[in-house]
Write a protein that binds this DNA or RNA. Structure first.
Lengths: 335, 335
DNA sequence: CCCCAGCGCTCGGTACAATCGAGTGCCAGG
DNA sequence: CCTGGCACTCGATTGTACCGAGCGCTGGGG
């Protein structure tokens, strides 16, 4: 553990570097009123902090910049309770007061909001289907052997699934199956529907069996089936100096599967921040991820997050993510 | 109009600049076997081309680069019939042979394909709803005063629309309205459904009226309601030198409304390419847009496009866009 | 024992000059 | 009309000098 002065110095280096994007020298550090010693003393402490792995220098005659470990210590021990500034708070409040309409649109707009608040890229993972119950269900015949299943879930989202059959089907068979399937599904979650009862009508039974298998299967939660809304990629671009970095981060953001896995990885370690190389993805070695789950009706159903350079304003990002996740959850809850 | 030699010189400057991203000097130009004169002659012709507005100079002692007008002349008069290389052709073929499943997924993947083929950002605008007929329709009660309408269209896409009512509704009223509305809509396009007949049942009539108005309204074609799939933003980033440019283009791509308007603007002028400032958007002054409509069952229903720097390989982009739009249309057609 | 003023050192950044070379415009002669 | 030749321009590169921010170390003082 670090003593009080070293902590103060580390904190100052981190906050200063976040603000200026420049290496921080001892003379800058002593401008902090909390540090009442001479630059020389600060230098010796900074050398110690460097030996212990919290700081580095880009070259001999430059100031210090934090390492991932330095940021980590800052986030865990040195940052104040994350508090959002009143203007942003206001913005979140009016956003959710006015929010209405389609779920997809709201999630997309939420990702934009979060990006605006933090000036980084924002990610919103749609609520998992496994906790939602089916409100209504319908089958439609699209072609001789193609049937589309549409389910409206309890939060108003629509889940569709096209199923290709071995045998040709008729309108009447599909209609019969539709009614039976609706009975089976309504009020249950998609993933846990009861197996269909036999009707004695051969083709309909086959149809129902195939549908049931595919629907339950398709609803199994997996990173590659989750829907993700990414907002503010343009804002993120501004945060990086080199086009190459931008390209790499963009290419990650385009693979929604990777994004979801990343968020889940972070949450599964019980953390809400992943700094630099703590992300398992090499091209994100200079990025940090701030995440929070959101709860609908007291159950965790989704995740939101912010992705930016390691040099990010963690307290602000944490605060924004916390507030937005909480309001988003409340918005989607039935109460 | 330009004489043969000037044309050849312009063509060489354009192709060379597209390849190298560097200003092209007279000595490079004469390496083209089609140009059998001395550098001095080329220089004088290039000076003429500059006076006429086809070329510029970044500075006195540099080679020439094409202006927007130069690119335009190249695209209109100098480029060979756009032909896709066999490998890409193969790629398109196998892509569409394997393509199946959800419409959304296919469109998203198509935008990725197009981006891969061209190394630029690609845009796919979903088929317009106005030419699709309703295959089935269903109402679901989400709350005391909220009703969700779900329609399955003839190509398998699902259109949903939540409607907030003045009055509370009951399950049975909604069910009644659902059946009536389904009769009304099935086989027609969403935008042109007949007005609902009066049932004599007060609440149901009110419900039907409100629904009908909102559904027809919501289906009216407008840039802001079109769905857009953008792919390959990361690839695009690589094409630009400055982060600022990347940011600006990204921020355009994030506003799907703007993207759709741009594509429509281009098509409405009867062109398939918009070069530099021909785009009305200031931040795209250094970008070009290559677009093509696609037809489903012999009717134009959507647009695809490629967005990159003005310094783009137009023949290749045109070829890719043409082939993909054609195959996409065929894929979505009922035949 | 901790602190700190002072000193010598390191190195990136800037400023400036010299040089290089790709490329131009122009002209006179074939 | 084309072209070889020539003077000129100007960005890019290289080299040099210098400045200054910042460091580590050390020896003296509270």
């Amino acid at each position: 553990m670090l003593d009080a002065r070293k902590s103060a110095i580390l904190r100052k280096v981190v906050t200063e570097h976040i603000e200026t994007a420049q290496p921080v020298g001892s003379s800058h550090v002593v401008q902090d009123p909390a540090i009442d010693v001479s630059p020389a003393t600060v230098r010796s402490d900074m050398a110690a902090l460097e030996r212990e792995g919290y700081l580095t220098h880009p070259h001999t005659s430059a100031g210090r910049i934090p390492t991932d470990k330095g940021y980590r210590f800052f986030v865990d021990n040195l940052s104040d309770a994350p508090l959002l500034d009143p203007a942003s708070h206001e913005q979140v409040a009016t956003f959710f007061d006015r929010a209405h309409g389609e779920l997809e649109r709201m999630l997309r707009d939420t990702s934009r909001l979060l990006s605006q608040l933090t000036d980084h890229a924002a990610v919103v993972v749609a609520p998992a289907h496994e906790v939602l119950t089916v409100r209504s269900s319908m089958l439609t015949r699209l072609g001789p052997r193609v049937v589309l299943h549409v389910a409206v879930l309890s939060n108003g989202s629509v889940e569709k699934h096209s199923v290709e059959m071995e045998e040709r089907t008729t309108d009447s068979e599909v209609a019969a199956a539709s009614a039976l399937l609706a009975d089976q599904l309504c009020g249950h979650t998609l993933g846990r529907a009861a197996a269909p009862a036999r009707t004695g009508n051969g083709p309909v039974d086959v149809l129902l069996g195939a549908l049931h298998a595919q629907i339950v299967d398709g609803a199994r939660p997996a990173p590659e089936t989750e829907e993700v809304y990414v907002g503010g990629a343009a804002r993120m671009a501004q945060q990086f100096a080199a086009v190459d970095q931008v390209r790499e981060v963009l290419s990650i953001l385009e693979q929604s599967f990777v994004v979801v896995s990343l968020l889940h990885d972070v949450l599964s370690t019980g953390q809400s921040v992943a700094i630099g190389t703590e992300n398992r993805v090499e091209s994100l070695a200079e990025c940090s991820l701030v995440v929070a789950p959101y709860e609908v009706d007291d159950e965790v159903v989704g995740t939101i997050g912010v992705l930016g350079p390691t040099r990010m304003n963690y307290p602000q990002a944490l605060a924004a993510v916390a507030v937005v996740s909480q309001r988003l959850g409340r918005q989607l809850s039935s109460g």
